[in-house]
Nucleic acid binder design. Structure first.
Lengths: 190, 190
DNA sequence: TTTATTTTTGAATGAACGTTCAAAATGTTA
DNA sequence: TAACATTTTGAACGTTCATTCAAAAATAAA
């Protein structure tokens, strides 16, 4: 009995390259040619592994979503308090936006671009956002009542979406921390 | 001397139909076939009038942007106070989102979809948002100091963006007015 | 080295894309 | 009615799109 030839490419690496391309140019705005160039794969290999452009996109999307929650929790656990953690996450969002190649949030972009084309993607992304909100809520629960936590988590989601879009505008507030605290005063610590 | 045949179509009507199609499906997600069907025009007529798909899109976009400011001011002037007017605008955004064919804000969708493809569109949309923010600021100036007005206008824009994206999620806050006031307490009147 | 299995290759495919333009139709003036 | 400027028509164009698949290459066990 014999064993196969071994894959020349690393699926994780390819997925990350696909994420970056889709993230920047959107689903309809990205051609297979771009993806082949970004990943270095040939059509046959890419199709054998991911079935189709849509298949690759869905895998890239769920990978991105999973990473998001991990990042949030890592950040909170690395901070001196939950509130400081959340505050630093928001500050990071503004910081990210200064990058020349800023391209917002892949989940948000997907939601806006594809909700009219594909109902299941709308549901899919909504579920991911629900998970993210629930995760914030769980973290807030360690310091607030369940009712307050749920309310604050909702506010947080809305503000994060707001930052994600507002950041495309060139001018940022002079004092970003003050700006954040003026909208979410309960984030104030010590 | 003689005079021409007369246009069979109304440019304003065609533009509105184009807005609705682009708004829903995005630039890359809308084909010329869809636009021909939505407008009832034949390729030749559409191209003679608007030059290209991009030309039609740009005209549709600027039309939409102009309408936005008009709507805001009409709403504020029709209210008993500036703050009530703004509050009712925000409530309307949530209300709109309940519609089955909700498709967010055309300007926001354009910004997210096309900023990587077309620098001039990014600039274009950013300028429109700056106008909208300046318009809110001018209205707030009638009751607050210039500094406070500028600060509140920024908050307002961020919250509007947030609502525009958050609304794709199915579950809305139970008491929407309370939710709004918890984020923008200065909107509270009487 | 041969055999078995898997992966890679990349030219080719048909469909859909945005766009063009010569010819026909339209409506007004002379 | 004839002359005309303008608009409409819609088949056809070349390009790019996502995708396929028979053949070649790669690998490791027998």
């Amino acid at each position: 009995m014999s064993v196969m030839a071994i894959k020349k490419f690393d699926v994780d690496v390819v997925l990350e390259q696909a994420i970056n391309t889709f993230w920047q140019y959107g689903y309809h705005g990205t051609s297979m040619q771009q993806l082949l160039q970004a990943t270095g794969l040939r059509p046959g290999s890419l199709y054998r592994e991911f079935e189709s452009k849509e298949g690759l996109y869905l895998l890239a999307l769920s990978r991105y979503a999973a990473d998001t929650i991990t990042t949030v929790n890592t950040r909170i656990q690395g901070s001196s308090s939950v509130l400081d953690g959340i505050k630093s996450i928001l500050l990071d969002l503004f910081e990210e936006a200064k990058a020349k190649d800023y391209c917002g949030c892949f989940l948000v972009k997907t939601q806006l671009e594809l909700s009219a084309h594909n109902e299941s993607i709308l549901t899919n992304v909504s579920e991911e956002f629900a998970k993210i909100e629930a995760n914030y809520c769980a973290n807030l629960n360690t310091i607030f009542s369940p009712e307050i936590s749920a309310q604050y988590a909702k506010q947080l989601m809305l503000v994060i979406f707001g930052i994600r879009v507002y950041s495309y505008q060139s001018e940022q507030p002079a004092d970003i921390e003050e700006f954040i605290l003026s909208i979410l005063p309960w984030l104030k610590t010590a």
